[in-house]
Design a binder for these strands. Sequence first.
DNA 1: TCTGGCGCTCTACCATACCAGTATTGCGAA
DNA 2: TTCGCAATACTGGTATGGTAGAGCGCCAGA
Lengths: 241, 241
Amino acid sequence: MAGRPLGAARRNQVGVLRRASTRTHVYTVLRRAIVSLELPPGQALSENELAARYSVSRTPVREALIRLADDGLVEVVPQLGTFVSRISVRDVVEVQFIRETLERASLPHAIKRVSAADEKRLRRLLDEQEEAELEGDLQHWFTTDESIHRSLLEIGGHPKIWPIVSSAKAHLDRVRMLTLPDPGLLHELHSQHRDIVESVIAKDRRQADQILRRHLRLAVDLLEALEAEHPDYFLLDADDA
Amino acid sequence: MAGRPLGAARRNQVGVLRRASTRTHVYTVLRRAIVSLELPPGQALSENELAARYSVSRTPVREALIRLADDGLVEVVPQLGTFVSRISVRDVVEVQFIRETLERASLPHAIKRVSAADEKRLRRLLDEQEEAELEGDLQHWFTTDESIHRSLLEIGGHPKIWPIVSSAKAHLDRVRMLTLPDPGLLHELHSQHRDIVESVIAKDRRQADQILRRHLRLAVDLLEALEAEHPDYFLLDADDA
DNA sequence: TCTGGCGCTCTACCATACCAGTATTGCGAA
DNA sequence: TTCGCAATACTGGTATGGTAGAGCGCCAGA
């Protein structure tokens, strides 16, 4: 093979971020690629190939794939291969239910506990997202989307809900990605964010809940149309895991 | 050459039937040991030592530890060690909230969808649990406990909630384990199971919800007392992750 | 006696080698 | 031409070796 491990001198090869472990880095990169559909559902992933592409060994790649498998984003079949999981309509609906249930349950607590500093932070995130929208920076838009939802959970005193919602979001965002770039949808989502935040600040429980619910359902409402449009991305209804 | 001996190829090192992957096996064993407090909070776990104890290599041990870290049951500190996580009161409360929210949200669906076959299955599980209770077989009791809760989620059409609840349950059961063996508590929990199932069958939403809620809160109600009794098992309130 | 620094040891992390299966493919026989 | 079988070229699973970093204890010096 090519060069042998040279120790610390070689450690910086992958990216600027040396802080996180290699495994986390690979996990992050792969996850982003899957959610963005850059790696389409059904795509075969080879541990060897990925290791070569990112110039790391198989070990961290493998560990990243295990985490992705736990997230349901890939399926690893022993002695056969690892594949980007196809989208299961049933799973998406259920994952959406989980997310909606948890975020809505936390919202009243956020309304009770929101502080002036929280308000400032939320409004800053909203502005940041608006900027990303105007600039057409999808990546940044999604980052702020996560920040807003995570912040609301943290304000509600339920930070541990976020990892669950985040895992759900991955599947939902993959669906949403099929409808993008639709500037109208993006704008509507951002507008809903603003309405939710303002309702929380105004301590209007009913309105906040109503908008959040509608907000979270936007992705799945178009599911059937998307399935017809991209049949190869979806799992057949008969299949179960 | 003469080729490999095909008959012997089937033989897997340990003759204990056809077990899942080593990684899963180690994960299961370790998880059970942690939840049962056989491995107490704060206990240091060494990859090398575990590998030696279970007569496997470090790789599957390491991968199992990563999964346990995702579950929040262990904490791995690079270049230092891996430790059974201490119990954080705040986390237990939050995890309890998550579990309660999801199970209660699914319950109405279970009431709508419960079939005759489901009823039979649930009652069989209840009988099985009663038997385990009478025999004092804690391990079996916990198994049926899991089956009952999982079944209710599946009947409600939300099987994907189970992994989340299961992860939450691990933390809650660890707390509960501090109160056992208390035959009175065990009996009360079983009795509540029966009441919940009967309410579901009777399609009494309000009663089912009420009992389930009380049922799920039993573990955390005693938290403060337990923390006073076993201070070394708990995390100090100041600490955050 | 106390303190500061050097080094030993143990850790998890990553790289690599080996193993046991599976799908493919190419070749020989019908 | 077509079919069956066996060698092969993959796959992921496991075992093992090497590396940097963190903690701790010993020891020299004040």
